[in-house]
């Protein structure tokens, strides 16, 4: 009988030890859901959607950051633009609040720097590979075969290569590493945007770059996160401030892998769309474009009414995994401070 009792005591103590013993803490945190429900918790909040937070990479800074290079004139009057791009593949970056992923980078960020030149400029890109693997830069555009960044892999740990070609054609193009396995090198973050302006400048506008990208953080060939400019939901809790009656121009490039398509839907407005930006006359007037891998273009629009407008993938799965943001349209006369979404 003793053994029976002993067994029962042991079992019941195990049962107690492994049941959920959750002790309450003192301070309370609060977050608000999309439907307005206020949730109180004594624990931690996991909310990449509405709770404003910052991570190492700043999408707001990247948004309007254009690099024109070190400019000089050649004897024949051609403008020479020199850039230095350094590849790395050992950085661990916080790609979403609390989630750390090994990104491979051009100049330390995903996407790499936005390179901008005028059609006909001579580009000289000094490429240094500080990674442990071979990398290259493959520019979309027109250039000699040996400048294509495919058959000239640059060795790691300081390998160098100089890409030199004339900027063209006019438009918005991606650049990315083209070392095999290609998908691996792209999805880890080795890509960026290359803009070629027409010799006669486009009308002045509030210009932005949006790279539509994603991260497969668990390596199952499906993206866990999507975003415009890397950080999921960033422009949702940090709305992009723009003004009414001001021309907005977005250079949009789709770098999402694994999923065959991506798209871009704008709320409360339509935009003129220039596929690949190669033409100066818009092809579409729409609020929805569909983009395949590395498909890109230029969007132009103006807001008539002030307020809060969403923009997001209408492939809603992507928007619910981060590819969504807000334009906070301020009245042009009196620029007002805007509320943050969800508060």
């Amino acid at each position: 009988m003793m053994a029976l009792i002993a067994t029962i005591v042991t079992i019941s103590s195990l049962f107690v030890a492994f049941s959920e013993g959750i002790t309450a803490q003192q301070q309370e945190n609060v977050f608000v859901t999309h439907s307005g429900a206020v949730v109180k918790t004594t624990g931690d909040i996991l909310d990449p959607l509405y709770t404003a937070s910052t991570v190492e990479f700043d999408p707001m800074e990247y948004l309007r950051d254009f690099n024109y290079g070190r400019v000089s004139q050649l004897s024949d009057g051609t403008t020479l633009r020199e850039f230095t791009i350094i590849a790395n593949d050992d950085e661990i970056m916080e790609v979403s609040t609390g989630i750390f992923y090994n990104v491979w980078t051009f100049n330390g960020t995903v996407p790499g720097p936005t390179i901008r030149a005028t059609e006909g400029d001579l580009l000289r890109i000094n490429f240094i590979n500080n990674g442990s693997k071979e990398h290259t830069i493959h520019f979309h555009g027109i250039h000699p075969a040996e400048m294509d960044g495919v058959f000239e892999p640059v060795g790691g740990n300081g390998g160098q290569f100089v890409y030199e070609f004339t900027a063209g054609p006019v438009g918005v193009h991606p650049y990315h590493c083209h070392v095999m396995p290609l998908e691996e090198h792209i999805v880890h973050g080795l890509y960026g945007v290359f803009i070629v302006d027409p010799k006669e400048e486009r009308p002045p506008a509030d210009e932005m770059v949006m790279v539509l990208n994603g991260f497969d953080t668990d390596f199952d060939t499906e993206n866990n996160f999507y975003a415009a400019n890397t950080i999921p939901f960033y422009y949702q809790h940090h709305p992009i401030q723009i003004n009414t009656d001001e021309l907005i121009r977005i250079y949009v490039v789709n770098m999402v892998e694994f999923d065959p398509i991506n798209n871009f839907h704008l709320h409360g407005n339509l935009y003129k769309y220039y596929p690949t930006g190669t033409d100066l006359v818009p092809s579409f007037y729409t609020d929805m474009i569909t983009l395949s891998q590395t498909e890109r273009g230029i969007m132009e629009f103006e807001y008539e009414y002030p307020g809060k407008y969403l923009f997001h993938a209408h492939k809603v799965e992507f928007s619910e995994k981060g590819w969504t943001g807000i334009f906070m349209v301020n009245d042009n006369e009196e620029e007002k401070e805007s509320d943050e979404y969800g508060t």
């Binding site: 918790t41 624990g43 909040i45 996991l46 909310d47 990449p48 509405y50 939901f233 995994k321 981060g322």
Partner: peptide, 16 residues
């Protein structure tokens, strides 16, 4: 770090 339902990211709290 994160919770999702049907593979769609949701805000959540984790206790303690």
């Amino acid at each position: 770090a994160m919770a999702d339902i049907n593979d769609r990211i949701q805000p959540a709290a984790v206790e303690p």
